[in-house]
Design a protein around this nucleic acid. Structure first.
Length: 476
DNA sequence: ATGTCC
């Protein structure tokens, strides 16, 4: 990216000045080198977002930002419904409510050293993974509706997990306002047999070792101890979310001229929040969020069953579950005024600071756990939302390492077998149905997650708490 | 991300 087009606000914040016809500036977070290496497409896409109506405050790009569909991945944008604000299917992304759930195991790294391979085999055998993977659960029309309305709460009612899980899940596991009738028949059909499945791409289930702590106080509040094992589950709303995205992108594009919207990019198709279409999309998107929450809840249940076989003493309890592809209605103080905003976070993690009433009391003093998935074979991180993150980026932080090269290029550069062997030499056991997928997800196809997280911390988006290293990885 | 093109 050409730094000459940016104004440097601080060591870690770069501004696209709000020149007409832009109504708000764009802010990119990261160090000089990161911004320099960012694709020009991120600049172009972030600038395009600033041209949408009803924006409040700057639009933001997180340090892991890269080229996405319409909005950059790692993008944050907030709209005021009463000021003509819009909701955008491309601003949420195709994988609605993709997110990360982190579980404690109570085990130490040494406890599983001799059983890593067997554990990997069991996890791989019991948790469906890969493109089009199906589980043993099949939802009829009534159950589908209940799931779309109930989310993880529905899953717990069905026997997948316990009430304690919900206290540690965003929205207590169920976002209100979901509208199953706004979800197409095709979207539901695609999801019928996909509950409790990981999917493909960058989705995974990892057993990880707590490798380093950066804030002992918050780590203690989160129950993170050195050398303890945790489990990260990264997945979303599978075929249902994807179909909702596809359906509404098409509909929003066709309706754009009726709304008098001139789109800077077809991929930024959107609808006024107050329009019938906007409201219908929000209802469908919330159903997609409940689907993702239920999905991660069922996978939690499957994971517990596997661990019970191998380690009867293990107790899998929740640290937290948070989405990084979603539009949420939140109150934020902008220029001294509290406003209700529709905050789009696409590849950006909500990072509520201490005292936020949405947090369970057990987490409220420490702030919200911000769960960052690294690339395969590299570190993952737990951060904490801070009071500062509110005015830095509407309480948002990065979501992962962020891709550094396209999937196609990664396939040309790396062999799947070679990547698996290399990770095995480092003691990381990988199971996946797709060597091609492994090549696309090669660690070097991603940005340096350590640097991304360092800069998220230094930019004041969230505070570093712990670094996690992979031990076992089940990969889509 | 995705029954990797209805």
């Amino acid at each position: 990216m050409d730094l000459n087009r940016l104004r440097q606000d601080s060591e870690f914040a770069w501004r696209i000045p709000a020149e007409a016809p832009m109504t708000v500036p764009g802010i990119l977070y990261g160090d000089r080198e990161q911004i320099l290496q960012m694709d020009d497409k991120v600049y172009e896409q972030l600038r395009n977002v600033t041209l949408l109506p009803g924006l409040v405050g700057p639009v933001y790009a997180m340090p892991d930002a890269h080229w996405g569909y319409g909005f950059p991945i790692g993008g944050v944008a907030a709209f005021d419904a009463d000021a003509g604000g819009v909701v955008s299917a491309g601003g949420v992304g195709f994988d609605i409510s993709c997110g990360v759930r982190l579980l404690h195991t109570g085990l130490q790294a040494a406890d599983i050293e001799d059983a890593k391979s067997a554990l990997a085999d069991s996890l791989y055998a019991n948790i469906p993974v890969g493109v089009g993977s199906e589980g043993s659960i099949s939802l009829g029309p009534e159950s589908m509706r209940d799931m779309l309305e109930g989310g993880a709460r529905w899953a717990v009612d069905q026997g997948y997990g316990c009430a304690g899980d919900l206290e540690r899940t965003e929205e207590c596991g169920c976002i209100p306002g979901a509208d199953p009738d706004a979800v197409s028949e095709r979207a539901r059909k695609r999801q019928r047999r996909e509950m409790g499945t990981l999917g493909s791409g960058n989705h995974y289930l990892e057993v990880q070792r707590v490798a380093e702590l950066f804030d002992a106080g918050i780590a203690s509040a989160y129950g993170l101890d050195p050398d303890h094992l945790v489990i990260s589950i990264h997945c979303g709303s599978r075929g249902l979310g994807h179909q909702i995205g596809t359906d509404y992108l098409r509909e929003m594009l066709l309706a754009a001229s009726d709304f008098g919207l001139t789109l800077p990019d077809r991929e930024l198709a959107c609808a006024p929040i107050h329009s019938e279409l906007g409201q219908r999309y929000i209802g469908a998107m919330r159903a997609g969020m409940n689907c993702a929450l239920a999905n991660r809840q069922i996978i939690t249940h499957l994971t517990r069953a596997v661990f019970r076989e191998h380690f009867p003493q293990a107790e899998l309890t929740m640290l937290y579950d948070v989405s990084h592809n979603i539009c949420k209605v939140e109150t934020h103080v902008v220029e001294g005024v509290a406003r209700e905003l529709h905050v789009h976070r696409k590849g950006a993690t909500r990072a509520f600071g201490p005292g936020n009433p949405d947090l369970d009391l057990s987490l409220r003093d420490a702030g919200q756990p911000v769960l960052i998935g690294g690339s395969m074979g590299t570190g993952s991180y737990v951060l904490a939302g801070t009071a500062d993150s509110e005015h830095r980026a509407l309480s948002s932080a990065c979501h992962g390492a962020g891709r550094a090269m396209s999937r196609r290029k990664a396939r040309r550069e790396y062999g799947g077998r070679q990547v698996v062997d290399e990770l095995a030499r480092r003691g990381i056991v990988v199971r996946s149905p797709s060597l091609r997928g492994i090549a696309e997800e090669a660690p070097l196809a991603y940005k340096d997650v350590d640097r991304v997280v360092d800069n998220a911390d230094r930019a004041g988006l969230a505070r570093k708490v712990a670094r996690l290293e992979p031990v076992v990885c089940v990969k889509g």
